[in-house]
């Protein structure tokens, strides 16, 4: 797996197991849940350039996730977010999809999400706003896509 500096990644997987974690052995992997305050403190004192979250962001509220990402940017720490929550894939511009321990797809997040049929065949749903926008485009209710719920609401009703 080619991880470049100055790039944030989301990795979604059918199973976040040792085969994936071993590929990220060069980095510190945060696997245990912690309070937002403890995570903030850890980021403030974090000595490396890249941090790996092992499916721990799901415990935080959406606004808390945004806060964590803003803090990481401020501290110039890149992150790799291992997750099973498709809503989280939009937190980064680059997405890697693992299936049965191997990379099945990767690329710019919005480009990968265009491959709806492959993703669904692998068992992954699209993020809600993107999925709904795609369906409404199909029914010609809207003429272009949206990446978040607020944008989608504006697009449909304005």
């Amino acid at each position: 797996m080619n991880i470049e500096a100055n790039q944030n990644y989301t990795i979604i997987a059918d199973a976040i197991d040792q085969s994936i974690l071993k590929k990220l052995n060069d980095y510190t992997i945060i696997s245990h849940n912690m309070s937002l305050n403890d995570l903030e403190e850890m980021i403030y004192n974090y000595p490396s350039k890249t941090i790996v979250f092992n499916d721990i962001l799901r415990q935080y509220e959406p606004n808390e996730k945004e806060h964590i990402i803003a803090l990481l940017k401020e501290r110039k720490v890149n992150f790799i977010n291992l997750t099973s929550d498709m809503e989280e894939v939009l937190l980064t511009d680059y997405l890697i999809v693992f299936y049965q321990g191997e990379i099945a797809m990767e690329g710019q997040t919005l480009d990968v999400l265009k491959e709806e049929k492959i993703l669904k065949r692998l068992g992954f749903a699209l993020p809600f706003a993107i999925d709904m926008a795609k369906q409404l485009e199909l029914y010609q209710v809207i003429d272009h896509s949206a990446t978040n719920v607020a944008e989608l609401v504006d697009l449909i009703w304005n």
Binding site: E61, P62, N63, E87, P127, F128, A129, M132, V149, A150, L152, V153, I156, W157
Partner: peptide, 18 residues
């Protein structure tokens, strides 16, 4: 608690009077 996306969608639509 925070709204799931499907609930958030309807909530924001209703805010617009839909």
């Amino acid at each position: 608690v925070s709204r799931p996306p499907i609930i958030e969608f309807v909530y924001l639509s209703r805010q617009k009077g839909i």
